[in-house]
Amino acid sequence: MSDLSQETEARPVPFRGGGFRPVAKAGTGVVVFVLLLALVEWGTRAGWISNLTLPRPSDVAVTLIDMARSGMLWTHVAPSLSRLVIGSAMGISAGIGVGVLIGLFSHVRAGLIPLVAALFPIPKIALLPLFVIWFGIDEASKYALIALGTFTPTVVATYGAVDNVDRTLIRMGQSFGLSWLSIVRKIVLPGALPGILSGLRVSVAIGIILLVAAEMLGAEYGIGAYILQAGSLYDLERLFAGVVILSALGVLTSWGIGRLEMRLLRWRS
């Protein structure tokens, strides 16, 4: 036995446990972004990307800086932001409310789930003319569009989250004689919060899409109106400047929700 172990050579056990656990590596996203921009910049300068296909990134940056200097940036961003905030606040709060009711009451569930299923797949942009007739051409119709667009995904995410709350915890609450309201407030809502927050990401992204659509169809100021103008003049620098602002808005809201999750869901492992 000992002879054998001396003769045969000892090898370390090979490691087989790696992978399948993606972690966010800080800065990688920025590197990808910068590389892509550098590639486009190089292409447009060298000429293998025509000016009619893509604008030069540096020109887009100059356009953005000019906008910021002249104050036009804020003139367009401010109304868009207020539309997004007001519209999605209405839609999301109504959505969470209705979603919780669907999650808690059988009658509400039976009555509203088909309705939500019918509303969800309608492209909300198609309803804009109707909303203009109902609410006028001003802000109200834009709020309504964004509110409806954020409402349905929030409802679906919320009642799914309420359904997924650990039933043993609810049983526990009942076994201790907690009041119905306490069970909802202290067990159901905190338990549903992770699902509601991840639904929020989807809802807000849909809100941004609808914001732009609504502004394209009738607004003097706003990022959507700005992009539409630039597009009809075939001003690619300004068009892309608008797109950059939208992406920044998307990144910003997603970051904000991420922060919210970190604060509210610290209890998760």
């Binding site: 043993t168 915890l169 049983r171 526990m172 076994s175 201790f176 202290k186 067990i187 905190p190 338990g191 209890w267 998760r268």
Partner: peptide, 14 residues
């Protein structure tokens, strides 16, 4: 009548 559950049933956020 008060239970103690096999899987503890603690509220993880408290």
């Amino acid at each position: 009548l008060t239970y103690v559950f096999q899987d503890f049933a603690l509220l993880p956020w408290r």
